[in-house]
Amino acid sequence: MVDSLFADVSYFQAPVDDSYPYAILSFRSNDGTFRDPNFAANYEWACRAVESGRLACFVVYFYWRPNWLDTVCTHREMIEQAGGPHRRMITMIDVESGGNPGGDQSDGINRAYWNIADWLGDTRRVVGYANHGDFHGMWPDRPDGLRVIGAGYGRNPNLPGQIAHQYTDGQGFGGGLPEGCPPFGDCDMNAANGMSPQDFAAACGVGIEEEFMSALTEAEQRELLEKTREIWIQLRGPEGKGWPQLGRDAHGANRTPVDALAAVEDALERPRK
């Protein structure tokens, strides 16, 4: 089983460089309206790393605050100033109780979620982050299909929709997994269990196939769909039930072209009496 590791950093660590060893990276843009000083350098490197094939995708996160619109606008503005959202970029909403009001904050968090989803054009490109308590306490009413990175140092929280697990803050909770990586040293580390970096990217709507389809016009996508449907019909027959003109198999079902070729080969190889 493939597991993908990746770091989660901010200005508390050094800016990323080519010594970074993994194919996914997560880094902060802002905490409310506070702008992370390392964001521009990290974003520039991440965009270049995706283009060179070093990264499969990257996550840019913001720490949610009750002034959610100002927080979201700061996140969006920082990314626009850095060249706009890269096609392999994912936004993560960091939901934590530290410094925030207690109780249900679903309304403000969901408003932030939908604002970003509308901006990026795909709900899959917006993921959440929280530990078990904050996830259920601050965000009990969540969008359908939400993908989540669950925080649980020393224990996997297995949150609904979880696609990765932040397993350590670099302080000894890894249980044998890395507590950090170059060039950051000890830091927050995540594991996408059972997923390759490409799987993780696809789950967040920024995989190679999604990129290919988004590059096509609507007319080109319709044409591709029609041609795929025609090929499927030729291979499987009308309604996927084979072609009557090719005869029937041992179970009485119409043969497909593949079945018919196999029957011909069998007949040719069968000894003549």
Rank of each mutant, 00 (worst) to 15 (best):
G172R: 08
V206G: 12
G207P: 00
P160E: 00
R111P: 09
E51G: 04
G194L: 11
G103R: 04
L55E: 05
K273I: 09
L225W: 04
I90V: 12
M195K: 13
I93E: 01
D122T: 11
I109A: 08
V95N: 10
N156T: 11
V2L: 05
G180K: 07
T256D: 04
E269S: 14
F135N: 04
M1Y: 04
L5W: 13
P183A: 06
P21L: 01
F62L: 06
Q162P: 12
L216T: 08
S97N: 10
W139R: 08
D17H: 07
F62M: 02
L235D: 15
K227L: 14
A82D: 00
S26D: 02
D70N: 13
R142L: 02
Y153G: 02
R270A: 14
G128F: 00
T91H: 09
S106A: 11
L5R: 11
A201P: 15
H136V: 07
V59H: 03
A49F: 03
A82P: 00
S196Q: 08
P160A: 00
Q81H: 12
A41T: 15
F12C: 09
Q221R: 15
A82H: 02
L216H: 09
L246F: 13
N110F: 05
V16T: 14
A267D: 05
E239K: 09
A112Q: 04
N158Q: 13
A130L: 03
L55F: 12
D18F: 01
G133T: 09
V2G: 05
F212P: 05
Q13S: 11
D188H: 11
E80H: 06
M92I: 08
P21D: 11
S10A: 15
K241T: 15
G194H: 07
A151R: 08
P85W: 13
N115D: 14
Y20Q: 00
D36E: 07
I149G: 03
R54S: 05
N42E: 12
N42P: 11
L225D: 13
I24P: 01
N156R: 11
Q166I: 09
E239A: 12
V60K: 03
T217S: 15
P182L: 05
T168I: 05
R87L: 14
V264D: 15
D188V: 14
S106K: 08
W114S: 13
S19T: 15
G180Y: 05
G150M: 12
W45Y: 02
P37M: 05
D266E: 14
Y11D: 07
V206F: 02
C73N: 14
I109F: 12
E265S: 14
V59Y: 05
L55G: 05
V264L: 14
D199L: 06
E239N: 14
E220P: 11
R111L: 13
M1R: 04
E269Q: 10
D94T: 13
M92V: 12
C57R: 05
I109T: 11
S97C: 10
N100I: 02
E44C: 04
A7P: 12
F58E: 06
D249M: 04
A7S: 15
Y129N: 08
L177Y: 09
D144L: 10
S52C: 06
S26R: 00
V148L: 06
G152W: 03
A130T: 09
W68C: 09
G108Y: 01
G240A: 10
W64V: 14
